[in-house]
């Protein structure tokens, strides 16, 4: 009797403990949810607010206290589209970002290949030197580049910006590809060479398929950096080749007070790359870490 009752007491207390433990796990999860979501919403708030403001009238946009509930209207979007054709700028952004990315990959792949598989004493130095070229402020070389572009007829042309963005991103692209290629065992390429594959065949039939995820993430980062670049696009284009960064600038100075329209233009300019970034973030982060995270 005694033992069985102690047993049942022990069992009951164990059950209580277990349910208490489960409840404390749940509590912990609820607290974490609260804290994490508060921070996440704070980080996202400026973007959310910009999106919301783009559907307000100008009066609602600057009202204090801020209006959270209002009748959404797309007048802002219609007005800015009447002023400047969004699709022309968006097309320029797409062509320039993709063009610069493809060109950079094309030039960087052979270089990264030789650094990874045929390293010399100078390989590290070359890599570091390449990265150091990225630390120069663009303004320092703006005038010479402007003069050269004027003489070559590259001002306000997509080709011109493609070349600049390719050069701008080349160091990072080479470095990222190098870290991916370094992870590929040399033996695999060796085997290909034994079978009589040329360097180009080696690259195209063996190396690229093996490192496709890495190449993809490098390309994705390159597209995002090109899309968001503002300095060169503002200084080297006027209308024909102007991408979305210039589109925004055209609304920012005289329209500073028209927040609804400015928000509509901003939303249009960032929406494609934000959605693109969200869809590809898992893929992209693998490249961003430069093989440092294993």
């Amino acid at each position: 009797m005694m033992t069985s009752s102690t047993n049942s007491v022990a069992a009951a207390s164990m059950a209580v403990n277990a349910s208490r433990a489960r409840r404390s796990v749940l509590n912990r999860k609820l607290v974490l949810t609260l804290v994490a979501w508060t921070i996440a919403l704070m980080m996202f708030f400026p973007i959310f607010w910009m999106f919301l403001t783009s559907f307000k009238t100008e009066a609602e946009a600057i009202s204090t206290p801020p209006s959270l509930f209002f009748t959404p209207s797309i007048d802002g979007y219609i007005e800015i589209q009447a002023r400047a054709d969004y699709f022309k700028y968006a097309l320029n952004s797409v062509v320039i970002s993709l063009g610069a990315t493809l060109l950079a990959l094309l030039i960087a792949i052979p270089s990264a290949y030789s650094m990874a598989f045929l390293p010399t004493k100078r390989t590290q130095t070359t890599l570091l030197w390449m990265l150091s070229t990225k630390m120069l402020p663009s303004v320092g070389v703006l005038l010479p580049v402007y003069l050269i572009f004027r003489d070559l007829g590259l001002l306000d042309s997509r080709t011109g910006l493609i070349i600049i963005y390719m050069l701008m991103n080349l160091p990072i692209v080479v470095w990222m590809l190098y870290t991916f290629f370094k992870d590929i065992p040399k033996d695999i390429l060796e085997a290909g060479r034994m079978d009589g594959a040329s360097t180009l065949q080696e690259i195209f039939h063996l190396l690229l398929p093996l490192t496709l995820p890495g190449i993809a993430s490098t390309g994705l980062l390159c597209v995002i950096l090109s899309w968001n670049e503002a300095f060169w696009s503002l200084n080297l284009t006027t209308s024909n080749a102007a991408p979305l960064t210039a589109y925004i600038a055209s609304f920012s100075s005289p329209e500073g007070l028209f927040w609804a329209k400015l928000s509509a233009a901003s939303t249009l300019a960032v929406a494609p790359i934000l959605i693109f970034g969200w869809m590809t973030q898992k893929q992209m982060v693998r490249g961003l870490t430069f093989g440092a995270v294993k």
């Binding site: 921070i39 996440a40 919403l41 980080m43 996202f44 400026p46 973007i47 910009m50 995002i224 899309w227 968001n228 503002a230 979305l244 960064t245 925004i248 600038a249 920012s252 901003s266 300019a269 960032v270 790359i273 934000l274 693109f276 970034g277 969200w278 973030q281």
Partner: peptide, 14 residues
């Protein structure tokens, strides 16, 4: 997580 990383994709000018 998507909310937290979103600012990275926004143009600096915007």
């Amino acid at each position: 997580r998507l909310f937290v990383i979103a600012p990275f994709f926004i143009m600096p000018t915007v």
